[in-house]
Design a protein around this nucleic acid. Sequence first.
DNA 1: TGAACATATAAGCAAATAGTTATATACTAT
DNA 2: ATAGTATATAACTATTTGCTTATATGTTCA
Lengths: 114, 114
Amino acid sequence: MLQKSFEIDKAANILKLLGDKTRLTMMKLMDNHACCVCEFVEIFQFSQPAVSQHLRKLKDLGLVVEERKGQWIFYSVNKNNEYYSFIKPILDQLPSQEDKLKELEEKGTRITCC
Amino acid sequence: MLQKSFEIDKAANILKLLGDKTRLTMMKLMDNHACCVCEFVEIFQFSQPAVSQHLRKLKDLGLVVEERKGQWIFYSVNKNNEYYSFIKPILDQLPSQEDKLKELEEKGTRITCC
DNA sequence: TGAACATATAAGCAAATAGTTATATACTAT
DNA sequence: ATAGTATATAACTATTTGCTTATATGTTCA
């Protein structure tokens, strides 16, 4: 019972994070690609700290993992997280956001960091 | 493209609503039973307006439907909503909240309205 | 070492959220 | 009609959220 209570708490916290258009789009992208902060800055046209703060929240719940590659830090969905199976069907039902990455490539801004 | 954009917006809005422990528990219960406001008041120990406001939000997005039966209004998950297939896997992965209804029955508070 | 770049953290602020109390509406039954 | 019960709406408030700007940290490379 305590466990179940914990689970629904945790599920609600996860859904709250996903219930933001920016983070949801990020997660959909990171489910297929490792992405770095500067890409998201380009995509969403938010300040770099805004992007960092979104990623921080996702990381705090264990939803994403980071991997430093030199100057850059790449984030991707943490598929080892025990709640990944909870999240997966949600992400799978979302429309692809690949066009956003393609746009970056066309503008040449993707190559700058990746 | 516009349509996809709309979809991810809508998905984020739905997830935001589900990202609240109270509403998430409500949804899990209403996926299996029609429930009335007074039951939720008992279960969550919130004021009646608080419960009504949660249900209003769920109704506004089309996630639940209401059916008046005399004095009472019963709410249940709207399985005809086009986004029900989006929500269903989420609800299915949550632990049953039946114990909360059972508690009411034991206290005799469920029978008062249903 | 120091300049340039990528990211993180801190502090502040406006808007959104989730509760409250007070009040209105709607149905039931005497 | 009126009293009792169930629900909805309105107005208010404290907290949370998601951005901003300013600043700190960490890496690369001349």
